[in-house]
């Protein structure tokens, strides 16, 4: 098997663009949040400084191999999610490693990071980590249910498991988007979207005011830097999937930037106006509202 060097180069470039985009965008979102509450907010390049600062810490301690691998798995989840999904539709350069069954793989990758993190944080032996993981995993699991059902619904609708084909079917006008052809499935998926973006009202797991910031309690310096990178990469990668599945994908980087920002703002807007749910409340919420909509989506197809 020959190695396709240009493709790897483009994949690396995709990663680079998306990480920088994510850095700026998350800072921008925080700035918007600050302006809403009447503050000036963080500097737009603050994320970069924090990242370098964390890498530049002089001492770091480890709790064993799994502890070390936790952030690595987490980042692998984000990178894998991004690279196995076509970022820009219709472009050979930016389709990266997408293939016939990539939708299933993407679903798997959404969960992969959390699981890796669970293993790593558990090894740190900090009780808060263990509690944080339990809460995080149960919330993510139940939030993913509507998404899985929505994905089944649209894969039945389009008769394919290939994201590129799904995007292709949505081309040619805004009313070909799944958003309009299958609004129930979109709604179900948006439940999951808001639930897994780790923003209010579903961010009790990593909230500093709760059990101190949950799973990453023990992580510092370069470990934390890896997780910070993932924190900006992963939401974008996830948003890309939603964009591809429900909002017609993107045909160039400009459209990509606008759409991702718009979709991301859904969770931000929900978060700004809603207080935090407790874990059991959010689980009840997803089982009561998210799951029936997902089931309905399948029945309607």
């Amino acid at each position: 098997m020959s190695i396709d060097w240009p493709r790897i180069g483009y994949a690396a470039l995709t990663l680079f663009i998306v990480i920088n985009y994510g850095m700026i965008m998350t800072a921008l979102v925080r700035k918007i949040g600050a302006r809403v509450s009447g503050r000036y907010g963080i500097r737009i390049y603050q994320n970069y400084i924090d990242l370098v600062k964390n890498i530049a810490l002089r001492s770091k301690i480890t709790h064993g191999v799994m502890y070390y691998l936790g952030p690595v798995f987490r980042l692998t989840g984000g990178v894998g999610l991004l690279l196995f999904v076509p970022t820009i539709y219709g472009s050979a350069m930016w389709s990266n490693f997408s293939f016939a069954g990539d939708l299933v793989l993407a679903l798997y990758f959404v969960f992969f990071g959390t699981l890796g993190m669970a293993l790593g944080a558990a090894e740190s032996g900090h009780p808060y980590s263990a509690i944080g993981i339990t809460r995080g995993l149960s919330q993510v699991t139940v939030a993913e249910l509507p998404l899985a059902l929505a994905v089944f619904a649209i894969s039945l609708q389009y008769q394919t498991l290939n994201i590129t084909d799904i995007v292709a079917a949505q081309q040619g006008g805004i009313f070909n988007w799944t958003l309009f052809t299958n609004p129930v499935a979109t709604l179900a998926a948006l439940f999951a979207f808001v639930g897994t973006m780790m923003r209010s009202p579903f961010d009790v797991v990593i909230a500093p005011q709760e059990i101190p910031i949950g799973p990453p309690t023990e992580y510092h310096s370069s470990y934390l830097a890896l997780m910070q990178t993932n924190r900006v990469l992963f939401p974008i990668a996830k948003t890309v999937i939603y964009m591809n599945l429900f909002f017609g994908g993107a045909t160039n980087w400009f459209e990509f930037a606008i759409k991702v920002f718009a979709i991301y703002m859904i969770s931000v807007l929900v978060g700004v106006v809603h207080p935090r749910f407790r874990v059991e409340q959010s689980i009840t919420f997803f089982l009561k509202w998210g799951l029936p909509v997902g089931v309905l989506a399948i029945l309607l197809v």
């Binding site: 600050a34 101190p212 023990e218 992580y219």
Partner: peptide, 18 residues
């Protein structure tokens, strides 16, 4: 909003490790 230390890159962390 009145003092807003975040604009100077000052943040609060909940754990001594970070």
């Amino acid at each position: 909003p009145r003092f807003d230390a975040y604009r100077y890159g000052i943040q609060w962390r909940a754990t001594p490790r970070q």
